[in-house]
Design a protein around this nucleic acid. Structure first.
Length: 199
DNA sequence: CGTTCGATGCACT
DNA sequence: GTGCATCGAACGT
C-alpha cells in the first residue's frame, strides 16, 4: 500500500503541513474493516495567538495534545454531536494543528456508507464532505484521540496520488480571525465542503 | 435554489 | 450559564 508519513513530515510549519497533506490518504483500521480517503481539504490552527485555535486560552486538559510532539491525533467532540480530527504539527511545546475537513473516499466505501447512514442513501461524493462527516465515515471517535499517526491503527499514507491544484481561503465555521486564509482545498474536487453542486 | 434552526455534550468562565 | 473548528431537515422563494 502507501508509505506511512514519518514524524518529520509533521514537524514543519503548520501551513506547509496543511498543503502537503492534500493528496495524502487518511486510513483507519478497525475490527469492522479498513476505511480510507484522500485528503482534499484542510485548515491550519496555529498557536495561542490564533483566536480560533484551541490553544488560545493557554494549556488546558482538553488541548494538551496540541502542546505535545507532532504526528499525533487531536480528536474532540464538537457541538455535542460531531468528532473532529486534527493532526498535531510543529515542535513539542508549540501548539498547532491541521484540521482534516474533507476526504475523497477510496477504500471500503460500503463500510463508510453503512457508518454514515444505514437507513439512507448517501452519494459517494458526500460521504466524507465536512469534518464531522468524515470522522463518522471512518469510525473516528474520542477513542482515537492522542493516537500516534506514524504507528497506530490511525495513520496517513502517501500513495503517490495527485489531488490537483490547491487554493487558500478563510477558514469555515469560525467567527473570529476571518482575515487569515488558512483553509487549503482542491476547488475542483466535489468532495470539498461548501463545494458547488456537480463536479 | 436559498436560509434558518434544533439537536446535543462538554470545556471553560 | 455560555458558546462552540457541524449537520441536515424543514422551511421560504
Amino acid at each position: 500500500m502507501g508509505a506511512t508519513l514519518p514524524r518529520a513530515f509533521y514537524a514543519r510549519p503548520t501551513l506547509t503541513v496543511a498543503e502537503a497533506l492534500i493528496g495524502k490518504v487518511l486510513v483507519h483500521r478497525t475490527a469492522g474493516g479498513t476505511a480510507a480517503g484522500m485528503i482534499v481539504e484542510t485548515e491550519a490552527y496555529i498557536g495561542e495567538d490564533d483566536p480560533a485555535c484551541h490553544a488560545a486560552p493557554g494549556p488546558t486538559p482538553r488541548n494538551a495534545p496540541l502542546y505535545g510532539p507532532p504526528g499525533f491525533a487531536y480528536v474532540y467532540l464538537n457541538y455535542g454531536i460531531h468528532y473532529l480530527v486534527n493532526v498535531v504539527t510543529e515542535d513539542e511545546g508549540s501548539p498547532a494543528a491541521v484540521l482534516i475537513r474533507a476526504l475523497e473516499p477510496l477504500d471500503n466505501v460500503g463500510l463508510m456508507t453503512k457508518r454514515r447512514a444505514p437507513d439512507r442513501v448517501v452519494e459517494p461524493y458526500r460521504l466524507c464532505r465536512g469534518p464531522g462527516n468524515l470522522t463518522r465515515a471512518l469510525g473516528i471517535t474520542l477513542a482515537e484521540n492522542r493516537l500516534d499517526l506514524t504507528s497506530s491503527r490511525l495513520r496517513i499514507e502517501d500513495r503517490g496520488l495527485v489531488a490537483g491544484r490547491v487554493s487558500w481561503g478563510p477558514r469555515i465555521g469560525i467567527r473570529v480571525a476571518m482575515k487569515r486564509p488558512w483553509r487549503c482545498f482542491v476547488p475542483e474536487n466535489p468532495c470539498v465542503s461548501h463545494a458547488k453542486r456537480r463536479a
